[in-house]
């Protein structure tokens, strides 16, 4: 690993002052579960690392009538165990609990989950976000088993964020702070499918820190369902988060967002439309799952993911209404 300067500020104000505006100069360290592996592989070679783990104001989950405020340093373990989150923001608790291994949940933070880099093995092997070699895209005819089935390129990696789909489904925002001030961005717009190698997959600027996540008052019926190859240490092959607003037993509004199928959390508008005015039954959930993948564009080796994504939507919907009248 390349040597770096280590900064250990105790306030957010000090921390942002230590960040460089140019990409690649500085990195923010929280749990380090992703960043340290990127540094071991020389994918990130920051000159300075800014540790934010000692910044008190980035801690804590606060629930109020207006919604939920989750500090960036809240760990996946804390989020998964929080009684309020489990009761009223189930899609988030499901997604956090789905992260494999207690060890990673203890270290990994919610801010880190949103800011982690894609797992695409071409990216991790040094071929860039768009995975090209001398201008030739490597993914469409390459080892694309785990790549995108939506979006149509030129980026084919899948967003690795576990919380992203649930936060998009819930209409959450993130607060981004720099030395110049702060801004709030909808999680939906936080993720970007890059069109060129100079664009990152999130809108966070190099001199900004994601300080908190703001989730509006809950849709009581929500869930996340992940499909995995095995029930152990691995990434989901496909996932879906749903948040439903009900009028009696009928869906008044649905948000259906798929994960691990596109460079961004992928909103399934067709599924949302298919659910309007319906009760959630095995049949309507399955129909919504089918609608969700209507426009899928699988690559040479990942057509199997179309079915998995469809099933993830179905099961997330059934899970969201389970045990509720």
């Amino acid at each position: 690993m390349q040597a770096f300067e280590y900064a250990n500020p105790s306030t957010l104000q000090e921390a942002v002052a230590l960040l460089a505006p140019q990409r690649g100069q500085t990195d923010v360290l929280a749990g380090g579960t992703d960043l340290i592996s990127l540094m071991k592989d020389y994918i990130h070679t920051p000159k300075r690392l800014v540790n934010i783990k000692n910044i008190q104001e980035l801690e804590g989950i606060r629930a109020s009538a207006g919604g939920l405020r989750i500090g960036a340093l809240v760990t996946m373990d804390e989020l998964a165990r929080n009684a309020e989150v489990r009761a009223s923001y189930k899609a988030l608790a499901d997604a956090a609990a789905g992260i494999p291994s207690p060890q990673i949940r203890h270290m990994g933070t919610v801010g880190g989950d949103l800011c982690q880099r894609p797992r695409c093995w071409y990216f991790r092997g040094g071929f860039g976000l768009l995975a090209t070699d001398n201008g030739k895209p490597l993914v469409p005819d390459g080892e694309n088993h785990y790549h995108a089935i939506f979006g149509g390129g030129p980026a084919y990696f899948v967003s690795a964020s576990s919380l992203g789909p649930a936060l998009v489904a819930m209409g959450a925002r993130v607060k981004l702070v720099s030395a110049k001030g702060s801004r709030e961005v909808a999680v939906k717009s936080f993720f970007v499918a890059p069109k060129d190698e100079n664009t990152r997959e999130i809108v966070l600027r190099p001199d900004e820190i994601l300080s908190e996540i703001l989730v509006p008052a809950p849709a009581v019926h929500s869930a996340t369902y992940e499909v995995r190859q095995k029930e152990a240490l691995d990434w989901p092959l496909a996932a879906a988060s749903v948040a439903l607003t009900m009028k009696g037993s009928v869906v008044a509004g649905a948000k259906v967002v798929m994960g691990h199928v596109a460079p961004i959390p992928w909103e399934a508008a067709a599924a949302e439309k298919a659910l309007a005015g319906k009760t959630i039954t095995a049949a309507s959930a399955e129909a919504a799952g089918k609608a969700a993948v209507e426009d899928a564009q699988p690559l040479s080796r990942n057509a199997y993911k179309v079915q998995l994504a469809s099933v993830a939507v179905k099961r997330a919907l059934l899970e969201a209404v389970k045990g509720k009248a």
Partner: peptide
């Protein structure tokens, strides 16, 4: 950070000490 052979307790919680800096 896959195999877990390096697991130790940090502040009473199990973590993988291969994916953490000593300064942390």
């Amino acid at each position: 950070s896959i195999c877990g052979a390096c697991t130790v307790m940090l502040q009473g919680r199990a973590v993988k000490s291969c994916t953490m800096f000593a300064v942390q």
